[in-house]
């Protein structure tokens, strides 16, 4: 079971006019794997991820995500994945409970399922005291844990995390990674996009994108050995050149 691929990407390409943002990338991600998707600003990782979650239509190439095709069934993909970003996680003006109800509804859960899930989350995250508080009043670490759980409400096959732990205090960050390990151990695939190399160190395997291409893909241990360095940060520095200096046009511009 563990070897089953839940993301299969083959020569996936995205062009914006003359500019190739993602250049024929290929890789596979297995069930229950924690996969790190790394790259500098403007390397193409956001564009690649948007194709994988069914938001952008690829220019060419192919990809299957949670056994659905990115051209034919982008909406099925959206139903079968979870997404959590550091920048946007939960509605600050809603209570914890209202957020769970809202996102449960969006993900198509029935009322009884939402009720059940709410009770389960209160129990697991010890939210008895906070469930009726506005999310905006909670510490960042709490928000992160709740929003991760909310991204898992509909039991997705894959959950996409965008810089999930940046700025979080070191102890909470570790509690968060423990949640991720547990989720992966239960068979959910974790796809982490980040340019924080300390997050990369926690992944089973990582890919590094440079100028639209995947330049490296392996376990952090093997990559460090291959480049003869001690941290993923050093691996990254050896691979990635500064986008603002080497690229004449396009990459220096925000592409979202």
């Amino acid at each position: 079971m563990k070897e089953e691929a839940v993301i299969q990407v083959e020569n996936l390409t995205k062009k914006f006019g003359d500019f190739t943002a993602v250049n024929a990338i290929s890789f596979e991600v297995k069930k229950g794997e924690i996969f790190g998707f790394l790259g500098a600003n403007g390397a193409g990782k956001t564009t690649a991820m948007k194709m994988l979650i069914g938001i952008y239509k690829p220019t060419s190439g192919n990809a299957q995500v949670a056994s659905f095709n990115v051209y034919k069934n982008p909406n099925e993909i959206k139903k079968n994945i979870g997404y959590m970003s550091q920048k946007f996680a939960l509605y600050d003006d809603l209570t914890v409970k209202e957020n769970i109800t809202f996102f449960g509804g969006i993900y198509g859960l029935s009322r009884s399922q939402i009720k059940e899930k709410t009770a389960q989350l209160i129990e697991e995250l010890n939210l008895q005291e906070t469930v009726n508080q506005l999310v905006g009043t909670l510490p960042l670490g709490w928000k992160q844990k709740i929003s991760f759980s909310v991204a898992l409400l509909h039991n997705p096959k894959i959950v996409f995390l965008d810089e999930p732990t940046s700025g979080v205090d070191p102890i909470t960050r570790r509690q968060f990674w423990e949640m991720i390990y547990e989720t992966a151990n239960n068979g959910t695939t974790i796809f982490v996009t980040t340019h924080y190399m300390d997050e990369a160190e926690y992944c089973d395997r990582v890919s590094i994108m440079v100028n639209g291409n995947i330049e490296a893909l392996d376990t952090p241990k093997k990559l460090k050995k291959q480049f003869n360095v001690v941290t993923m940060n050093d691996v990254f520095l050896k691979l990635a050149r500064s986008p603002s200096l080497t690229l004449p046009f396009g990459k220096g511009v925000k592409n979202d």
């Binding site: 500098a40 600003n41 940046s166 940060n233 990254f236 520095l237 990635a240 050149r241 500064s242």
Partner: peptide
């Protein structure tokens, strides 16, 4: 350096 990639951070 928040939100900045490792290359720019180093620079």
């Amino acid at each position: 350096t928040t939100g900045v990639d490792p290359v720019s951070r180093k620079e």
